[in-house]
Design a protein around this nucleic acid. Structure first.
Length: 426
RNA sequence: GGAGAGAUGGCAGAGUGGUCGAAUGCACCGGUCUUGAAAACCGGCAAGGAUGCAAGUCCUUCCAGGGUUCGAAUCCCUGUCUCUCCGCCA
């Protein structure tokens, strides 16, 4: 949510940012609606003041009370009218405002699509194979570790059943990632609900605009989370944080659920794009002037994982056409996938500035000065576990189809260091 | 699923029609005292909005939404959530 006062002061800056996202300028109409709202509001407040002062006369005098009653009655009619009008305008205003994406940072490169993203750096050497590397799907199915027939029977497409040593690797990865984040990088580990209410999704920006991407349940109208950014960031919704408690850093592992409404035909099989996937998430609530710094600490945390796992990756700055709704600046991490001969996204780290904190009324108070302001919120994946699994399968494959397990994970896989065929056919 | 109770400031907790944005305690901030600290004492301390250069003035908010009334934290209705007991259950 944007600050209307900012828009009124800087309409052209605001419109320019929208233009970079290929959106139409709208400052003029927003300002117009808001001013109209203020007109109604001020008029209403004047009448309210009159009404209040008339009511107070009752405890002071006893004469002409009927006359006052009548005056109040007349005022109430006007107030009701103006109340309706101002509410209408405010609703109109909010409806527009909630669908406007965040302003993008000056650092964000111009561009229309993924193609225009800026590669910041490429790290790690791509392994050379003296055979044709397979993709994760062939590898895992050959090893009997992934079953799509069963997944389709139980739930349909875009689900999978992970089995045996691959399931153990998945579990080990989750523990490795959570330990990394909480012990080495001081994020507070949490377990959070995977069903959330409307307000929470509005707070982080998924609603009202992206309803189609979400799964809604018939229990209290709760939604399945598309990312644990939603519950983690909303932990401090509608509240005032003591400045001394910043920065607040959370990490969690959850399943994430996405309808993938606009992705038909893309990555239809395999762990790449599923309706349900596991993800470890990082969220930071930071002082406004510290958020850039915090983002770089966050990306360092993610990078360290990729380095520990010796996976070749690149760091990509998203362009104005590709950046998410709530973000002002986003850095993606992509791992080299030899079986697909391309880099694929495994993490996205965003600085949302005060966009989400304004939406969810998360504020910070400096108790020394009394000052109250909106903090910046950041979120990042560390990492999407399914995709990380793909990366390990493809990067650590041997010619015979077996998979080495990276050495940092051995203590998380109870010493298991190679995945070979699971003989059990069930 | 059945029965009952409740939702008030950062927290605890008074308040049952006007003088209530709301007692009191704790926490927090400032001060006195002290070599320093603690204790004690004194003072301050909700949020959002409008307007104004500012000081200030005004409006709104006691879970949410309706209603009664000149006037609602307080009375009535609806909804949501929480708690307790019983049943069921990982």
């Amino acid at each position: 949510m944007h600050d209307i006062k900012f828009i009124k002061k800087n309409p052209s800056t605001f419109d320019l940012s929208l233009k970079k996202r290929n959106l139409k300028p709208c400052s003029e109409i927003i300002i117009k609606i808001h001013n109209k709202y203020l007109d109604y509001l001020n008029e209403k407040q004047n009448y309210l003041e009159k009404k209040n002062s008339l009511s107070k006369l009752f405890s002071q005098q006893t004469e002409d009370l009927d006359k006052i009653k009548e005056q109040v009655h007349n005022l109430k009619i006007k107030i009701d009218e103006l109340n309706k009008l101002s509410e209408e305008k405010l609703n109109e205003f909010n409806k527009i405002m909630l669908e406007i994406p965040n302003l993008i940072s000056e650092k964000v490169p111009d561009g229309n699509s993924q193609e225009d993203n800026n590669i910041i750096k490429e790290v790690g050497k791509k392994k050379k194979y003296n055979f044709q590397p397979k993709n994760h799907l062939d590898l895992a199915e050959n090893l009997n570790l992934l079953d799509y027939g069963q997944a389709i029977k139980i739930s349909g497409s875009r689900f999978s059943i992970i089995k045996s040593d691959l399931a153990k690797l998945h579990r080990g990865l989750v523990n490795f990632l959570l330990d990394h984040n909480s012990i080495k990088f001081d994020y507070k580990e949490c377990i959070v609900p995977e069903l959330v209410n409307y307000k929470s999704l509005e707070g982080t920006g998924q609603l009202p605009k992206f309803e189609d991407d979400l799964f809604k349940t018939n229990f209290n109208d709760l939604y399945l989370i598309p990312t644990s950014e939603v519950p983690l960031t909303n932990l401090n919704r509608d509240s005032i944080i003591n400045k001394k408690d910043l920065p607040i850093k959370y990490t969690t592992y959850t399943n994430c659920f996405r309808a993938e409404a606009g992705a038909s035909g893309k990555d239809t099989k395999g762990l790449m794009r599923e309706h349900q996937f596991g993800k470890v998430e990082l969220v930071i609530i930071s002082e406004p002037n510290e958020s850039e710094n915090e983002l770089s600490k966050m990306t360092t945390c993610v990078e360290k994982i990729l380095q520990d796992l010796s996976l070749p990756y690149r760091m990509v700055e998203l362009c104005s056409g590709d950046i998410g709704f709530s973000s002002s600046y986003t850095v993606d991490f992509e791992i080299w996938m030899p079986g697909q001969n391309t880099f694929r996204e495994v993490s996205s780290c965003s600085n949302c500035k005060d966009f989400q904190s304004r939406r969810m009324k998360m504020r910070v108070k400096n108790f020394d000065s009394g000052e109250i302001y909106f903090p910046h919120t950041l979120n990042g994946s560390s990492l999407a576990v399914g995709r990380l699994l793909i990366a390990i399968l493809e990067n650590y494959q041997n010619e015979d189809g077996t998979i080495e397990i990276p050495s940092v994970l051995h203590k998380y896989t109870n010493g298991l260091n190679i995945i070979s065929n699971d003989d059990q056919k069930i």
